[in-house]
Design a protein around this nucleic acid. Structure first.
Lengths: 147, 147
DNA sequence: TTATGTGCAAAGAGTTTGCCAGCTA
DNA sequence: TAGCTGGCAAACTCTTTGCACATAA
């Protein structure tokens, strides 16, 4: 059983010649539908909800596979576990809301240009970069969000 | 035994009323003298060279203590272990040489201002931020560095 | 059919912690 | 002296892996 149209990530797997098992299809679907930056455990939980025959080991193996196939991007927001999101055409950075844990994506042309220029000035060619802003909502009453 | 003048970090510990044991003194000295961004294991090795009566657990406990006392800054350069450096007056960012693993510090006023502005535009107040550039030396013959 | 993928549980890396002896203030 | 600190080893979290069985192509 596996009806409904293939997810974006499923299609990318087909393009790259990856063998598509039921488990991979399910994980691909979960990741295609995610609009956040889930960690492995979250992907695992969402996937087992759709198909209980999936082990956490398979999730780890699959996200690594997808990362190596340049389908997924791995992030580290400093909380000790890896987070994943689908690779996008446009580069963006992240602002982490320290109250709620929410992650907001943003893009800023000036910053992108500056990064490249700074690397050059130091005698380097920029390969990759990472910019994360940790911030709290302006004028938020001091509620307690997740850790 | 413990002569020679107190290291910068030792003095900060005294300021903050932290109990100074021989182990902490040694670890403080190692960290004050470091001009790189050592991980716990490196601190441990440098410390035991000066005094073999130090365990890795103490190093972990001490760097955490110093971090909480705002004496040390903890970094994560994406290699899976925490790196430490003394807190500095001026903020700076890091460029990681992916060939050699060397970490270069830099400061750029424009980037600092932009970070703050971007957070504001998104409705946030910047608390902390992290910018890391991963780069390779320009015109480096393609030798093989660390993975 | 056959190379590959999967589940399970054990192993690894980095980090934390409980307990009692030892040392600092 | 009183109470905090340190050593040791066990425990924890996240991630990887060996092995035997299952499955896609």
């Amino acid at each position: 059983m596996s009806s409904s149209s293939p997810s974006r990530i499923e299609n990318l797997c087909i393009d790259r010649g990856l063998k598509l098992t039921e488990q991979r299809r399910t994980i691909a679907r979960v990741l295609s539908e995610a609009d956040d930056h889930p960690d492995v455990d979250q992907v695992y939980r969402r996937a087992t909800r759709l198909d209980s025959r999936i082990s956490i080991a398979t999730v780890y193996r699959t996200v690594r596979l997808l990362e190596e196939a340049n389908i997924l991007e791995k992030h580290d927001f400093g909380d000790g576990r890896a987070r994943y999101e689908e690779v996008q055409d446009d580069h963006h950075d992240h602002l982490i809301d320290v109250k709620s844990g929410k992650v907001i994506e943003f893009f800023n042309k000036e910053i992108e240009a500056l990064k490249k220029r700074i690397a050059h000035e130091l005698g380097y060619e920029l390969i990759d970069h990472r910019l994360e802003l940790f911030a709290k909502p302006i004028s938020s009453p001091d509620e307690d969000g997740a850790a």
